[in-house]
């Protein structure tokens, strides 16, 4: 189960990397924003659901609470990504305030990258050195 968690956590990191790629390719597309960012948005929803799934798997695997909390934090930050976009869009089109708020989307993306990378690294460490994991944890 812990191996599964470590594997899923690595997949989560890859998905976040792919998300950066889609954001960039959407930004340089000439189609209307609605259309060129469709893959980015779809993967965004997918990452949200997936990070929740990884959190649940972490809980089932009885990973340390801190690790589960960090995985849940990834889901929370992904929600914030959507929130930033909504708030930025609420300003009138093209206004400076909206653009500035939207800049946070990239900053928050870096935070998501950092936290999910951290989760994956810690999970791998735990799997490689099971001796260091809390004793007596059942293998359910």
């Amino acid at each position: 189960m812990r191996r599964v968690f470590a594997l899923l956590a690595s997949v989560l990191v890859l998905a976040v990397v792919a998300q950066f790629f889609l954001a960039a390719s959407g930004a340089f597309d000439t189609a209307p924003a609605d259309e060129s960012f469709r893959p980015h948005r779809a993967l965004g929803y997918a990452i949200l659901l997936f990070s929740l799934l990884v959190t649940v798997v972490g809980a089932l695997a009885r990973m340390p609470g801190r690790l589960i909390g960090m995985t849940a934090l990834v889901a929370g930050l992904v929600v914030v990504q959507g929130l930033i976009r909504t708030v930025a869009a609420a300003f009138d089109d093209g206004s400076t305030a909206g653009t500035l708020v939207f800049g946070l989307h990239a900053v928050n993306a870096l935070a998501i990258m950092a936290v999910s990378g951290n989760v994956a690294r810690r999970a791998r460490t735990l799997v490689r050195s099971p001796a260091r994991s809390p004793a007596g944890s059942p293998a359910s």
Binding site: A59, R62, P134, A135, G136, S137
Partner: peptide, 12 residues
Amino acid sequence: LLTARVVAAPGV
């Protein structure tokens, strides 16, 4: 329930 399970886990 899942939270209760994690909280009940030894060491946590």
